[in-house]
Amino acid sequence: MKKKGTILTMLSSITFGFAFTLGPMTYGAEGSNPVTLTFLRNFLSLPFLLVIILLLKIDLKITKKQLRDLVILGFIGNAITTLMLNMAFAYIDVGIVTPIHFTYPIFVTLGCVIFFHEKLSKQKVLALIVAMSGISCFFLSALNSASMGSSTVLGLILAIASGVFYAFYIIFMDKSGLKGESPFKITFYVAVASSIGMFIYGMITNQLVLSSLTSKAWTISAIFAFLCTVVALSLLQIGIKHIGASEASVISTFEPITSVIFGSLLLGEKITSIKVIACILIFAGVLTLSLSKSES
């Protein structure tokens, strides 16, 4: 059963990594943009989630406090995280954005230390230094690049911001008590809140451009939502059931690696030596942090 859980969790990471390379394919000539993609990522996932909830006979009842927490989680934690990611994809390679985003365990640790006074062990300090060194490599690469511009730096900042907001998502999920509910139930309400939030934001800013999307953009957006919501999330939940959350979090660090590989295969992104070094440092830092948590 442990082998099955490990394989399923790894397949979940590969699916997430592959799905993230699809987003940028809807930009430009296909008519989409980060705001539209973020809205569709959540809105198109609702039918899939509803089918899963009905099949599993999950009770959708929630309290007033849970409704408030889910709105906060959906808009601030999920919608802004996804929007930052999708915006970063418009400026820099997926193979750079995803590894930087995946430093969120570092920000979770920092958030818990700063706001909840949790202890910071020597192993965690080492993990922070190693992972931050990896992020620094990306910035140094951008600064030394002849083609470097303000858009490159903005992309790097957005990638880091996506990790910070996702860290908020995880901390808020933990401290609010929502983690005790069914993952699919939480994901459904988070998707609803995110869809409403992004629809309002898109209408106000005139960035929700559904009418200009090509059939290819609609198809890719639907596949993106399906892979993230049904395939990857379901595999992850089953994997956690068999091997536990701590071990699953360690295996999930394969996600940024798959993003780098698929970014190269599907989007023609270059795998440079500095990118490889940065990915190794980030991977080592996050892995060290995950192992320290699983041992504590």
Rank of each mutant, 00 (worst) to 15 (best):
K293E: 15
L208S: 01
I14Y: 07
M198I: 08
I106W: 02
I14K: 02
A217I: 00
I277T: 13
V286E: 10
L178I: 04
M10G: 15
D69I: 04
A79T: 03
S133F: 11
S246Q: 14
V113G: 04
L178N: 03
I106F: 06
I52Q: 05
S45H: 01
T205V: 05
L266H: 11
G239P: 08
V230R: 02
A131C: 08
L49S: 06
K61E: 11
L143F: 15
R68L: 15
L178G: 03
C228I: 12
S194R: 01
A146R: 13
F165Q: 02
E181M: 14
V153M: 12
A284Q: 01
F254T: 14
F116C: 04
I96E: 11
A193Y: 07
M198Q: 00
L227Q: 00
V231P: 07
K241Q: 12
S121C: 03
L37I: 09
P24L: 09
T219C: 11
F199V: 07
A19M: 14
I240P: 00
I106T: 08
G95K: 10
S133Y: 06
N86W: 00
S182Q: 05
L267H: 14
G149T: 13
G263L: 12
A29D: 13
F115K: 04
A193K: 06
K2A: 06
C112F: 14
A131G: 06
L40F: 03
E30F: 00
S252P: 07
F18V: 06
Y201P: 00
L143I: 12
T26N: 01
G239D: 13
I271Q: 12
G244C: 04
A79E: 05
T36L: 00
N86T: 02
M132A: 12
L281M: 13
G5V: 10
I271Y: 09
I261G: 07
S234W: 09
L55V: 14
L40N: 03
L60V: 08
Q237Y: 14
S182V: 04
S215G: 11
L289C: 07
L110W: 05
K241H: 11
L140M: 15
L37P: 00
L178K: 01
L126E: 06
V164S: 04
S296L: 10
K64Y: 13
K179F: 09
D93R: 12
L46A: 01
F226A: 09
T6A: 14
S151A: 14
K293S: 15
F283G: 10
V276A: 15
I280N: 09
V113H: 05
P105W: 03
A146P: 09
L83G: 00
T103N: 10
P24Q: 13
K61H: 11
K275M: 13
H117D: 12
V192A: 08
M148N: 15
L154V: 09
A278H: 08
L8E: 13
D59F: 03
V94D: 06
S13C: 07
F89W: 02
S194M: 07
A284L: 11
K2S: 09
L22W: 02
S150C: 06
Y104H: 10
F75W: 10
T15H: 08
A284S: 14
S182R: 02
A232T: 02
